[in-house]
Amino acid sequence: MQRTTMDLWVGLFVVMGVIALMILSLKVGNLNVYNPSQSYVISGNFENIGGLKVRAPVKSAGVVVGRVTDIQFSTQTYDAVVTMSMDSRFLFPKDTFASILTSGLLGEQYIGLAAGGDEAMLKDGDKIMKTNSAMVLEELIGRFLFNKASEDDSL
């Protein structure tokens, strides 16, 4: 087949496009950090999830180890059931403590995992028993005012 300079330019164009896509997925995106194909699913019941959303990160020691895949309301226990997809490279003990935290003052909410000391590890479909709800500002202020009032009464 006859080769022309036009072919060279078009080839260069295609190479540039492919490189751009690769930069987007590797440098801009987080393809290398978290691979959802190798994962296991765990869940936990939270009394109050605050502003937690689906796709929020699950972090342990600040490192992203999974993502929230589903949030449902349970009518049996009247609390929120949060399903998390975890990277299968990271296994956590059965008595891991899960709490809903906020990154920064106005940042997004995420689930923080603090590993326990149990020998057995969490498997696919397991449930985290120890959970801590999100901090709701109104409740916090209410509790503070209530404490203040009871202090004043005792004087």
């Binding site: 896509l21 987007l24 997925s25 801009v28 995106g29 987080n30 393809l31 959802p36 796709r55």
Partner: peptide, 19 residues
């Protein structure tokens, strides 16, 4: 700049949908 970008941009949801 780069790390916050990487933790927020998801491959499947953001980049693939844009594509």
């Amino acid at each position: 700049y780069w790390s916050q970008m990487q933790s927020a941009v998801d491959f499947r949801f953001d980049i693939m949908n844009g594509f």
